[in-house]
Design a binder for these strands. Structure first.
Lengths: 238, 238
DNA sequence: TGCGTGCCTGACGCTGCCTTGATGCCGGAT
DNA sequence: ATCCGGCATCAAGGCAGCGTCAGGCACGCA
């Protein structure tokens, strides 16, 4: 764990967990340049200690660490840490990436990635997490043209009331629960259909399709109900 | 039983009964954040003691406790406690959920659920409970277009007097007694037909149909006498 | 004894939902 | 250029739950 000298105060505190020096340097420079304060760890061990001690606002975690796999880190973190965790994975570690998301990570970046993408993801992760419970206070979830009233179990799209079947409603709820986060197929299936059907990926396609046709202006080009190829889905808010 | 230090005064006092630490933490944080004061118990034993000692305004009870099943807790609570009890159940314990409602729980949440749902249910439970006495005060129950005079045994719908058969009347009373609550089939059958006929679900269909035709503007699209699929019925007031 | 009212019971139909398979499209890989 | 896997869409089957209807029976009353 280290916090090299002069960090500009004010920006969000980010913990970067990355063993490769090159990559670490890139992340450090980029983040500093954009007013983040940066902590660094080069192993799982270090990462957990540092996170506990410094309570960062966000964790960027590279999978493929020397001492333990990243999944374990996510699990251990999640026992107490509720902030956003963004996972960085090399292209050939797809299964790990998914495991990490299942374990509670919020989003992922696949190497190689550019500065723009990195910053966008981090901003999104922080934004989501800071989002106040203003909507929740009313028992209503609102984003764009979508409006979900938990009290009355009613859904509205572009001002029009929409009838959802129980499963559709549950699926939508699950997505809202993880708004702006990547939700893996397994996770969605578990939450909506139960443990017994975690590999009926086809259900998801059918019901996502249904949701899109009921909620999206142009179901073929969804604005909210996004597909994350090879991983799952995501509800984009705003 | 525990009440960690500083609770803001003012909000309703909620007793959370939950053995899983993660879940307990989520509930605590969420509720605190929304001005509830929170008590916690991790076992049936503790729950009963705590409830008796502190008289919470509401109880959130997870089924599937280590020392006793949640149904027992509801039963024991109901021997003296009249406040709202909201049950939390995992998806695979549906039968238990119904048993808990039969035993006197007010509403239920199925894991996993989001903050919105949680808060909505609690608000509804508290709201209903504070108001239950009001309508019954004069021996007259009024909601929407429906008016029931318990003293005179008279029912009015949209200004017109309506003749109900004795059984219809008793069924309506049972629903009014639990206004806005989910009432299981078993419970209705018990209260109207008696213990011996708790599984004659067909009676309910016939008599609910009759009630709807006499009381609802459009019996095919009931506004007050609502079906809770796979569970029972509910009288919606307002 | 005849009539009316209310209750039970079975049959029926319907709707809405879930599941499943077939098909087509697109983009990436070979 | 072609193949292939993953995703979206469509349509059909089947099922369960619920609502509705009508006939029969019992009871009370005149």
């Amino acid at each position: 764990m280290s916090e090299p000298a002069k960090d500009p105060a004010g920006g969000p505190l980010v913990l970067v967990v990355e063993d490769d020096a090159q990559m670490r340097r890139f992340l450090r420079v980029t983040l500093r340049m954009h007013q983040y304060r940066v902590l660094e760890a080069t192993s799982a061990q270090e990462a957990l200690v540092c996170a506990a001690a410094r309570r960062p606002d966000l964790v960027v975690l590279d999978l493929g660490l020397p001492d333990a796999d990243g999944i374990t880190v996510v699990e251990r973190l999640r026992t107490w840490y509720s902030g956003p965790v963004v996972v960085v994975s090399a292209r050939h570690q797809e299964p790990d990436k998914i495991k990490a998301l299942d374990a509670g990570a919020d989003d992922y970046l696949t190497k190689p990635f550019g500065t723009g993408e990195l910053l966008a993801r981090l901003r999104a992760a922080l934004r989501t997490h800071n989002r106040t419970a203003a909507n929740v206070d009313q028992g209503v979830f609102v984003t764009g043209t979508l409006r979900v009233d938990h009290d009355r179990h009613e859904v509205e799209s572009r001002g029009q009331p929409v009838k959802l079947t129980p499963l559709e409603y549950r699926l939508l709820q699950a997505l809202i629960r993880h708004a702006d986060k990547v939700v893996t197929r397994t996770q969605l299936l578990r939450e909506v259909w139960g443990e017994a059907h975690v590999d009926e990926a086809h259900y998801l396609r059918v019901y996502m399709s249904a949701l899109r046709h009921k909620l999206e202006a142009d179901p073929a080009r969804p604005q909210m109900l996004l597909t994350e190829p090879n991983v799952g889905y995501r509800l984009r808010t705003q």
